[in-house]
């Protein structure tokens, strides 16, 4: 765009990257020092033998914790706080879980197909008690495909912001303003990818990830509805209030 200079794109990339690094649940240094220890077989079995509702509650708590960091990420991006509060809420309701899924690749071990969960690295089998194997498999596949792109933290940050500023979410009041932020974020991402001498295909691959993320979130909503039909009281009394607010 002729209206955005390279310096502005660098500045935007810097702000978004800084926000991302400040609000990552696990710092990069922490990850490097972390002993990427897998769950032992009896620990896997212990998760598998939990009652369905207990495992759902545990995952809801973990998701909610991760989402709180995403809210903080959004708040530190100037353009986000300039939006009206309705739109801030709309974007977070629709996009915060998507950003959690993106961030998941930072704590994902591709070789073992395990993800950092509750202190150790867990494979899909540890989540059996949830009763949604297909969704879990898709989430792991998504994380694996994100890892294959080998994005830098800055690229990851910009892609997260791009997804957060989705201008096609329902109920936005100032759609144009969101669109403008999304375009700028897209340009910044493109600019940084070029600067990092990434091949052209990466941006296209990331665009494809947007629909994959939507599908994952829709399926999470479906699974939650099915769970709610059987355990309405568990959600009401034991699930984190923020989780209920976002997905209720």
């Amino acid at each position: 765009s002729p209206t955005v200079s390279m310096a502005e794109l660098d500045h935007l990339a810097h702000i978004i990257s800084k926000s991302h690094l400040e609000t990552c649940q696990h710092l990069r240094e922490e990850l490097q020092q972390m002993n990427w220890q897998n769950l032992l077989q009896d620990e896997v079995e212990s998760y598998q033998s939990k009652p369905r509702e207990v495992m759902w509650q545990l995952c809801a708590v973990k998701i909610t914790e991760a989402i709180q960091y995403v809210v903080e990420f959004a708040k530190r991006i100037d353009g986000f706080m300039d939006l009206c509060q309705n739109d801030q809420i709309v974007l977070l309701k629709a996009g915060s879980l998507e950003v959690v899924f993106i961030r998941m690749c930072r704590v994902f071990d591709s070789q073992n197909n395990t993800v950092y969960f509750d202190g150790k690295f867990a494979g899909p089998d540890a989540f059996k008690a949830l009763g949604c194997d297909d969704l879990i498999t898709s989430v792991f596949d998504f994380a694996k495909s994100m890892c294959l792109l080998h994005l830098t933290e800055e690229e990851l940050a910009l892609f997260s912001a791009f997804v957060l500023f989705s201008a096609d979410r329902s109920w936005l009041q100032e759609k144009l303003q969101v669109e403008k932020m999304q375009q700028r974020t897209h340009l910044a991402l493109q600019h940084i990818l070029q600067k990092n001498q990434r091949e052209d295909g990466v941006l296209n691959k990331l665009r494809c990830k947007v629909s994959a993320l939507r599908s994952l979130c829709n399926r999470h909503t479906e699974k939650l509805s099915a769970f709610r039909a059987i355990y309405p009281d568990v959600i009401r009394t034991h699930f984190p209030p923020l989780y209920k607010e976002l997905f209720g």
């Binding site: 709180q68 903080e72 708040k75 809420i89 977070l92 309701k93 923020l242 607010e245």
Partner: peptide
């Protein structure tokens, strides 16, 4: 606002 009380609060809180 009432429906999204917590989200509203999180957005209002100054960044920590």
């Amino acid at each position: 606002k009432e429906k999204h009380k917590i989200l509203h609060q999180l957005l209002q809180n100054s960044t920590s």
